[in-house]
């Protein structure tokens, strides 16, 4: 049905109607489309937080780049950490289509005005952590992110498709490292179990607070920028991971973890939400260190960025 021309004075109600219909029909909102201000603001916050997580997420594994115990592992890990820088860029790109500015978003991260995933505030104590991060943390990220490939916002959905493709490689390399280590020495097997013990619960927390305590979820679901509830995704992750843990030969540190024969799904024990709140609010083991490193990268090298800009001006911006 052809739409009647809009009144020169913008008809907000009519635009809202068209927006709602577009989202309801599972079509994509694109950058120049009209969108409610709350939608734009929520998206910028969500995408920026996601981008920050990719960039901060380079650090826990980056700690092991220089020490990786074989050249093949070093190359794989380097490729992976590099991918994360790329993911951060794809996502900042998406945020910029909404009027945000990467320089400004980076400052907000460093000043603590925007958050990143709390998982990256835990330390990586042994090389087994590299494998467990790939398996559990990237596995949880994939569960969270695959549905976002159908996000109602086009640039975000397209960025996520590329991110998810690369994440699948990340998860596989992590699991493969763990399989190799489990086939190694007793000491290596103990390292893997220890890493699983430390990362299991924080991984479950990655899906966010329980649905009963997630105030903005309903609106985000209606806007098509969140596709499944936190608890639903968490359950999916547990069900996916339990058989993988069995195959690997590690124990997941939850005495209550059991298959419910009626539903075919796994029951699991209570999550320590106070811990999540502490870590999110900056009290995690590595918060200060993670931010300090970003701050140093920005401040110590600002002169180099200025130099390149000055050169471009001198030699014509299109040199």
């Amino acid at each position: 049905m052809p739409a009647p021309p809009l009144d020169p004075v913008v008809d907000e109600a009519r635009l809202q109607e068209l927006f709602d219909a577009t989202v309801a029909a599972e079509r994509r909102i694109e950058p120049r489309d009209w969108m409610p201000e709350g939608y734009r603001r929520t998206l910028v916050r969500q995408i920026a937080q996601h981008a920050h997580s990719e960039i901060i997420g380079m650090q826990p594994e980056g700690d092991w780049l220089l020490r990786a115990p074989s050249l093949r592992r070093k190359a794989v890990l380097l490729a992976k950490v590099q991918d994360e820088a790329g993911h951060g860029m794809y996502l900042y790109s998406a945020a910029e289509t909404l009027g945000a500015d990467r320089t400004d978003l980076t400052d907000r991260l460093i000043d603590g005005r925007q958050k990143y995933s709390s998982i990256f505030n835990y330390p990586t104590l042994t090389f087994a952590d590299v494998g467990v991060i790939g398996w559990l943390v990237d596995g949880a990220a994939i569960c969270n992110q695959v549905p976002l490939c159908r996000s109602s916002y086009g640039p975000y959905a397209r960025a996520m498709i590329r991110v998810c493709k690369e994440e699948s490689f990340h998860q596989r390399q992590g699991y493969e490292l763990l399989l190799t280590m489990m086939g190694g020495t007793d000491e290596q097997r103990a390292m893997v179990q220890d890493a699983v013990d430390r990362w299991w619960w924080p991984s479950l927390m990655m899906f966010g607070p329980p649905d009963t305590d997630s105030p903005n979820s309903a609106q985000s679901m209606a806007w098509g920028i969140k596709r499944h509830s936190n608890d639903e995704l968490r359950q999916r992750f547990v069900d996916m991971t339990v058989p993988q843990a069995e195959f690997l030969g590690v124990r997941l540190p939850d005495p209550d973890l059991a298959l419910d024969p009626e539903t075919g799904r796994h029951r699991f024990g209570p999550i320590d939400w106070d811990e999540l709140k502490r870590v999110i609010s900056g009290d995690g083991p590595c918060n200060a260190e993670r931010i300090a490193r970003r701050r140093a990268a920005r401040d110590d090298n600002a002169w180099a960025l200025e130099a390149a800009s000055a050169y471009a001006q001198k030699h014509g911006a299109r040199s």
């Binding site: 960039i55 980056g62 780049l65 950490v81 820088a85 490193r293 110590d300 090298n301």
Partner: peptide
């Protein structure tokens, strides 16, 4: 070059350092 990862002036340079280091490692 890998020592620059997570410390580079811009994200674009993180990726460039990574590429160069990966080539040399190969």
């Amino acid at each position: 070059l890998t020592e620059w990862i997570t410390a580079a002036p811009e994200l674009e340079e993180e990726v460039a350092f990574g590429n160069t280091a990966l080539d040399l490692l190969g």
